[in-house]
Amino acid sequence: MKETKIAVKDLSLYYGDKQALKDINIDIPEKRVTAFIGPSGCGKSTFLRVLNRMNDLIDHVKIDGEVYIDGVNIYDKSLDIVNLRKNVGMVFQKSNLFPKTVYENIVYGPRLNGIRDKKLLDEIVEKTLNQAAIWDEAKDRLNENALSLSGGQQQRLCIARALAVEPEIILMDEPASALDPISTAKIEELIHELKLNYTIVIVTHNMQQAARVSDQTAFFYLGELIEYDRTTKIFTNPAKKQTEDYVTGRFG
């Protein structure tokens, strides 16, 4: 077992009066891929957004409990959320590139960090596009509008953009759900490469995908964490009946 990167203790989340997450406890290991699965509305995406405090942006959300990253409670009131989000990157379900050039999209984050040096920015662009395995396709199109790329390319560009701020953790919210099988395969391959250097948490609808890419899998149902274990165990020999029903396709 690798070292724990993220430790969540007794976390509950409410939308107004409605409780969306119930007493979640989970330890997420460093430099591994952890998958969250479960039927839609089970809270897996909401929980993912807990880990970089994206839920703070929504009105009427109340959160109890603690989330520790490297031993620091990220829900501490005086903590710098902006710094947190720089270290915990996020890739969203649908590509959300800005309507700017490929280059401008990648350097958006580094520029926020005050990097102005053109040479340094160029280096970051090349490095992160290489990391996201899209350099060859994009190197001649750096000054084109990012939205002119194909859907799969756009999503890999989103990953590159997230990498450009040098996070340690990358949260992925169903990153391949809108893509065709070939693009999906490319993203999955990319996830394999990235876990050498990054802690990755991925929410997915697709159980085969979870089985293919993740080391650990957590099964959520109705706002509760039902079961959390090594992926092979979850898919071959789950401890709970609900998990078994779900992974064998009996509901969801």
């Binding site: 990253i69 490297d70 990220i74 902006v82 710094n83 947190l84």
Partner: peptide
Amino acid sequence: DSKYAKRIG
């Protein structure tokens, strides 16, 4: 010494 411990400036 975690990089997450940064307080809001």
